[in-house]
Design a protein around this nucleic acid. Sequence first.
DNA 1: GTAACTTCTTGATTTTTGTCAAGAAAAGGA
DNA 2: TCCTTTTCTTGACAAAAATCAAGAAGTTAC
Lengths: 189, 189
Amino acid sequence: MTALEQYISSYFGVPEEDVAAISSYFKPQQLRKQEYYLKAGQVCDTLSFQHSGLTRFFVQLPEKEVTQWIGTPAYFMTDLNGLMFGKPSRWSIQALEDCELFTIHKKDYLALGEQMPAWHELEKKFIARCFTYMEDRVFNLLAMSAEQRYQWLFGQHPALFNQVPLQFLASMLGMTPETLSRIRKKQLM
Amino acid sequence: MTALEQYISSYFGVPEEDVAAISSYFKPQQLRKQEYYLKAGQVCDTLSFQHSGLTRFFVQLPEKEVTQWIGTPAYFMTDLNGLMFGKPSRWSIQALEDCELFTIHKKDYLALGEQMPAWHELEKKFIARCFTYMEDRVFNLLAMSAEQRYQWLFGQHPALFNQVPLQFLASMLGMTPETLSRIRKKQLM
DNA sequence: GTAACTTCTTGATTTTTGTCAAGAAAAGGA
DNA sequence: TCCTTTTCTTGACAAAAATCAAGAAGTTAC
């Protein structure tokens, strides 16, 4: 089994022949550090599995830049607004370091849905998980203080704080870099 | 066409015979004011179309209560964590006023997926839209001030502010009732 | 290795938002 | 209708987080 096949198998829990069929649609792609996977305003027409490297989803506002998400290995990357609804993206996706991806283009993505009966259901469940994760994020932003949000993210992905510039994590947590710095200082004392 | 059929048709854009097939699975259900559709800790095993009335999704914390969402007519209501993954709900769903629902139970919901080939794809797209909406909500909470968030919600659903106790809307917007009250006063001047 | 650049930390200060408390307004029930 | 209960508003104050500014630490490129 290739790395991609293992990922697909663990995600979707489908028979091995389906795993092979699905993964055959995905093609290797390199992304160099700083390179863009997608630029704001473009219509995203790919879906990628992130095998290695880190990516950043961000929105450029007139006054500031907002990091919506950090893409990490073993997760999928796309802009659903583009892939599913043909709408332009509000954010850019940029590589924070060199990345190895497995990418499927929209044409093949649609073919996959037609040729593999179970695909829509698998994808539905996958997107549903993403939705419930977003529900959690909204809840955290509604109910928790900056410090509690930090602890939540640190509890889930401690390694991120050594890999990603802290200013991006601060933004993703809904606080300024200064606030994150002070929270982290307090944790040490 | 019944009201339910019209809703399904407008949501999913499917042929009329499919609309009839889908809607035949949904049964009318009444919910009295204050009654619970779901209580925190229960596993949600229904999916309902909200024909009339308003509902509130909220989490009861030791110190405070957090309103995550207000359910309005012409939208679906469920807890995906329960319906799709069999997990207990973190929030309760309660009727703010008498509600008329069309409800499908999990058993029939699963049957629908098996008997109607297009169902999973329709549902996938529907959940994907919910996901992109949650992306917007997260972005708003990350990037906007309390006042901007108010204006955003008011721009989308001005009528809500006459129908729902403002304390619930304040919570859903991530602010206190006092802050919302002051923002609304400022809008008038 | 060093210069240039980026990122992080720290302090002082301001702004935003939350908390507490009391009264006003509105809604609901007998 | 009037009484009770809930919801909303307002003011005074406190706390949380943002802003501004400067310097330290860390990275990167030559």
